[in-house]
Write a protein that binds this DNA or RNA. Structure first.
Lengths: 166, 166
DNA sequence: GATTATCGTTAGCCCAGCTAACGATCTCAG
DNA sequence: CTGAGATCGTTAGCTGGGCTAACGATAATC
């Protein structure tokens, strides 16, 4: 955070905000902050397309990951089944996915994307990308490559955290 | 409206794919996904300290940014006043911050951190950092520097998005 | 055939976001 | 000095995401 509101004049104590993250403390803080604020920004876009971040994320998995059961989807998204039930219900209500019973094992519910779901996802993505592109377009190509590289690292970090369970 | 040059090919991206972000579409997607999953992981830690991500974030601003009004805090955190009212109420109930009336303008409410608030923030941070450190410790020093650098870029991107209205 | 395991849902809780509306206060025109 | 308007924070009420606990239906196993 540390995005001082309105009076940046009397530069306060605070650890050097614009400086690089010299240690793990500030790196963790800044990463945390960046994630929160990025999602808050993205939420606004998501609202425009009627898709919240969790729904968008789940829909993306269904569209690109092919049909899968609710439980698999919950695990993929790292949430508990009841949570995924609600997300899927929301997506289904909007006609973006469909529940299909498994003929062999009637306990299972397969989640499939509908044509509308794929269409909306593409549109929502384009919308978001357009916005991010214009923001990212101000970075130089080199910086963009750095950012891209860092996202890879981030993914590793997340997987690592996930493995060791809290 | 500047439309991204290329349509999303039906490249199977799917979450677990470690492929590089060759274009803005996938970069945006991966960034989005990374942010969501990072916060979901962090939430578990936050729960341990009894502080949700938004509360932790707000507390951090109060602690490092000094006393400020509720409205300023809401703007700093990019949320609406009613939302901040509730966050502050939660923090106050836990004794982490205090509301102070302004003697000159009785409409204003100043938010101050308490000693306990500062202590808890430090503890929570340490807790989170320990976790992130162990995850990040698997990266090489060079990678760590890259990640640090990228966080800077991310901040610029976020500010940029914020500036241009949603 | 009875027990046990698995899957998804329901119920019920808490928190985070929003808008709309409101009371209290301050400001300022007249 | 007074009354209209602006500003601030709160309350009320909605949506939605996250969880645990408990449950019914179905499979698997003994």
């Amino acid at each position: 955070m540390r995005i001082a509101a309105k009076k940046p004049r009397s530069t306060r104590i605070r650890s050097p905000a614009p400086a690089a993250a010299h240690n793990l403390h500030s790196l963790a803080d800044q990463l945390h902050s960046a994630a929160i604020h990025l999602l808050r920004q993205l939420r606004k876009e998501d609202d425009a397309s009627g898709l919240s971040a969790p729904r968008l994320s789940a829909l993306s998995v269904v569209v690109f990951g092919g049909p899968l059961t609710l439980g698999e989807l919950a695990r993929a998204e790292q949430v508990k089944p009841p949570t995924m039930t609600r997300i899927v219900t929301g997506l289904e209500k909007d006609g973006l996915v469909e529940r299909k019973d498994d003929p062999r094992d009637k306990r299972l519910t397969h989640i499939e994307s509908t044509p509308k779901g794929r269409k909306v996802l593409a549109a929502g993505r384009a919308h978001r990308v357009e916005r991010l592109a214009s923001a990212v377009g101000k970075l130089e190509g080199k910086e963009l490559a750095e950012l891209s590289r860092a996202v890879q690292l981030l993914r590793e970090v997340i997987v690592s955290m996930r493995g060791e369970q809290a």
